[in-house]
């Protein structure tokens, strides 16, 4: 049986936030008297993640995804509830725990700016107690997987964003952690660099059975990497389950464009009981529920003179966009 590697129970987090009124008067008032209020950014959430799973955290900006990741890796103390990651309480940041995890942030970097990435790799290797031989072996393996063996000796400041991000990944993975926390790892990368990074993560997960928790605003990251998603809305979990189930739930119908042989056939089809979206001459667009697609298509092909047909999937970005603004999904 696959073990739970992350176990979160009734987790909440509150921050003290100070607010300021606009204008000079507000600024002066704010300087002398800070009005702070406690804001609950994470509200009583619970979930489990199994070893080897890749889980995507979805939510709008400020929904609380990054705060959850930072609590999972031990950077932020939870206000209430409990977290266990690899059998450790993350916020204690014990050496054994830290050697098992890594955090990669798309918008922050740990590489030494003026030196080639290889220097940062060896520095990290010494911090993680790896001897030179082992470090060299791992750098070689990971740089081949990431296809950056040529860039290892070029100063970081001269590397492209994509090459830098790959180097960041290598620096973060040199100790071969079994839990990866990735906070928007493909931010700012071009399409090819994004694809390469995703390919690498898939391969890494397959080879090492590492657990990956990922946040991203690029839907392609989520759809190509994650079977399971946790949707966060205003600090609470609005959905936790399989991605394809969520997509089916959110997009229960498909649109089918049918090109009939003649306009008469199109009129006949229009009057046959299907939900018609529009009709232009011999082209007719109908909406069919996902579960009736096969039977409906059989009926249409057997009873009407059809020249061509196209099944249109609604764009995934549009579907997941709905997740970001809705509160509950009962699936």
């Amino acid at each position: 049986m696959v073990q739970n590697i992350i176990d979160v129970r009734n987790l909440s987090k509150s921050f003290d936030i100070s607010s300021k009124e606009p204008g000079l008067k507000g600024t002066i008032k704010h300087f002398f008297i800070r009005q702070t209020k406690s804001l609950k950014v994470i509200k009583n959430i619970s979930f489990e993640i199994k070893e080897g799973e890749i889980v995507g955290f979805l939510g709008a900006n400020g929904a609380g995804k990054t705060t959850i990741l930072k609590m999972l890796c031990g950077l932020i103390y939870p206000s209430e509830g409990s977290i266990l990651v690899s059998g450790h309480l993350p916020f204690r940041r014990k050496e054994n725990f830290l050697k098992n995890i890594t955090l990669i942030m798309g918008q922050k970097q740990q590489l030494i700016w003026d030196l080639p990435p290889i220097e940062s790799f060896y520095l990290n290797a010494s911090i993680y107690d790896l001897d030179k031989f082992e470090a060299k072996k791992r750098i070689k393996r990971l740089s081949e997987m990431l296809e950056i063996d040529q860039e290892l000796f070029i100063p970081v400041r001269k590397l492209s964003l994509g090459q830098r991000m790959k180097s960041e990944l290598l620096a973060a993975l040199i100790h071969e952690p079994n839990v990866l926390f990735l906070d928007e790892p493909t931010l700012g990368l071009d399409i090819n660099a994004q694809r390469n990074l995703r390919k690498f993560l898939q391969k890494y997960n397959k080879e090492t059975n590492a657990t990956i928790c990922l946040t991203s605003h690029y839907m392609k990251d989520i759809t190509s990497l994650c079977k399971r998603v946790i949707c966060v809305h205003e600090g609470a979990i609005s959905y936790d389950g399989k991605l394809d189930l969520l997509l089916k739930k959110l997009s229960p119908v498909k649109e089918i464009l049918i090109v009939c042989r003649s306009e008469e056939d199109a009129i006949k089809l229009e009057n046959s009981g299907f939900t018609v979206k529009n009709k232009i001459k011999n082209e007719i667009t109908i909406k069919i529920e996902n579960r009736f697609i096969t039977s409906s298509l059989k009926t249409i092909l057997n009873n009407f003179e059809i020249e061509d047909l196209f099944i249109n999937e609604p764009p995934i970005d549009e579907i997941i966009g709905k997740v970001l603004i809705k509160k509950d999904y009962d699936i």
Partner: peptide, 10 residues
């Protein structure tokens, strides 16, 4: 926020 990297090192 780069203190995150420091705090997560053993």
């Amino acid at each position: 926020g780069t203190l995150d990297f420091v705090l997560l090192k053993p």
